[in-house]
Amino acid sequence: MPDFQFNISKGRATELYTRVKTGDPATSALVLVALAETGIETDAVLEDKDTLADVLSGSTNEATNVGYARKVLSAADLTVVVPDDVNDWVDLALPDATWANVQAGTDWSKVLVCYRPATGSPDSAIVPLTSHDFPIKPDGSNVVAQVDPSGFFRAA
Rank of each mutant, 00 (worst) to 15 (best):
F4I: 07
F4N: 00
Q5T: 14
Q5F: 06
Q5E: 13
I8S: 05
S9M: 01
S9V: 05
S9Q: 04
T14F: 00
E15N: 09
V20I: 09
V20N: 01
K21V: 01
K21H: 15
G23K: 12
P25H: 10
T27M: 08
S28I: 00
A29K: 09
A29M: 10
A29Q: 10
A29G: 02
V33H: 09
V33A: 02
A34V: 11
L35R: 05
E37Q: 13
I40Y: 00
V45G: 01
D50S: 13
D50G: 12
T51D: 11
D54M: 01
D54K: 03
V55F: 03
G58D: 06
N61H: 11
N61Y: 07
A63D: 01
V66D: 12
G67E: 04
G67D: 06
Y68L: 05
K71E: 07
K71N: 03
V72C: 06
V72L: 14
V72Y: 11
A75M: 05
A75N: 10
A76C: 02
L78I: 09
T79H: 11
V82C: 08
V82R: 07
P83I: 12
D84P: 06
D85A: 12
V86E: 15
V86D: 15
D88P: 00
V90S: 12
L92K: 00
L92S: 10
A93K: 15
D96I: 06
T98Q: 10
T98W: 04
N101W: 07
V102Q: 04
V102R: 00
Q103K: 02
Q103V: 12
A104E: 14
A104I: 00
G105E: 08
T106A: 04
W108G: 12
K110W: 06
V111G: 01
L112K: 02
C114G: 02
Y115A: 04
R116Q: 14
P117A: 10
T119G: 06
T119Q: 12
S121G: 12
D123M: 03
A125Q: 15
P128E: 13
T130Y: 12
S131L: 04
S131Q: 05
H132D: 05
F134H: 13
I136Q: 07
I136Y: 08
K137P: 02
D139R: 12
N142K: 09
N142T: 01
V143E: 08
A145R: 11
Q146W: 05
P149Y: 01
P149E: 11
P149Q: 06
F152N: 05
F152R: 03
R154Q: 13
A155R: 14
A156G: 15
